[in-house]
Write a protein that binds this DNA or RNA. Structure first.
Lengths: 160, 160
DNA sequence: ATTGAAAGATGGTTAGT
DNA sequence: ACTAACCATCTTTCAAT
């Protein structure tokens, strides 16, 4: 997959991950190319699914989502049917930004963003606990963000 | 904080969280306004720090970062000095996309993106274990992504 | 795969309501 | 705070290499 990209494509992806508002002209200047090849390459990268989209990153503390929790959930019934039902329900909750099925002891791992502990408590009681019977729920809260990146490092595969 | 925003600002933030490439004209059409007030409002939202930036979202599976791990770390020495030193080092590792200091039993919580289990093993042995003496490290791996959002829901405060 | 040019659309500023 | 009009800049297409 990565082998279908050359170093110019990778540089473009790196730049757009940091700042999606760069113009094709600006990207071209840093890569010593005119806007047209940049335009064509970005179009291709989008069509091939390397770029999934462009989003604005907000300061969650300013929009009443200051409390970030990671919630580890174990279901009581591990049938495929029950697991699927849990997923279908939980991804509809606006408080749940991310939901992963995990290896190890816990079945699911949720990133939950809410205003405060009261709201989190409401979320557990009124939403999460009502989906399916839960075996265990373990919540930890972010005290301090030391790093939060949306961008992945991209390293050239050897031999390119 | 949220109270300094009206419903138009909130709609703009919602739209840009979903698609940062919307033009002022397109946003204006959905909000029944001309591009100019959209432009002015976005400028203000950026200056006030509601919008932290615009980024491209990549498909991590296509760029050799298909394995996502959550790593819970407890240090052996909990002095402020040691905790700070750990943070300073760990945020320089390219594999670490996120690093949080957490409530509860674990000191730190890392989101780590690597190519595969071999690479993760290298990351632990060659990088993480060499920062400071660790008490415990618990790794869980994402088997399946059910939901992954970068956008926060924004709800109007009552009385606006 | 890249350049350069041309056409159309958008961004950003300004003046006016 | 909004509209309308303006110009500079950018996107996108296309012929040519």
């Amino acid at each position: 997959m990565l082998n279908s990209l050359d170093s110019t494509d990778i540089r473009i992806l790196q730049l757009l991950q940091e700042n999606a508002r760069l113009t094709n002209k600006e990207i071209g200047e840093r890569l010593n190319k005119t806007p047209t090849p940049i335009y064509e390459r970005i179009k291709k990268l989008q069509e091939q699914g390397y770029i999934k989209g462009y989003v604005a990153i907000l300061d969650h503390k300013k929009i009443d989502r200051g409390l970030m929790a990671f919630t580890q959930v174990q279901l009581r019934d591990h049938s495929a049917e029950n697991l699927n039902h849990f997923v279908e329900e939980v991804i509809t909750f606006e408080e749940v930004l991310e939901c992963y099925q995990m290896s190890g002891g816990f079945d699911f791992f949720l990133r939950v963003a809410v205003k405060d502990l009261d709201t989190y408590h409401d979320f557990l009681m009124k939403k999460l606990f009502n989906v399916v019977p839960l075996g265990s729920v373990q919540s930890t809260f972010v005290l301090k963000e030391a790093k939060r990146e949306t961008s992945f490092p991209i390293t050239m595969p050897k031999g390119k």
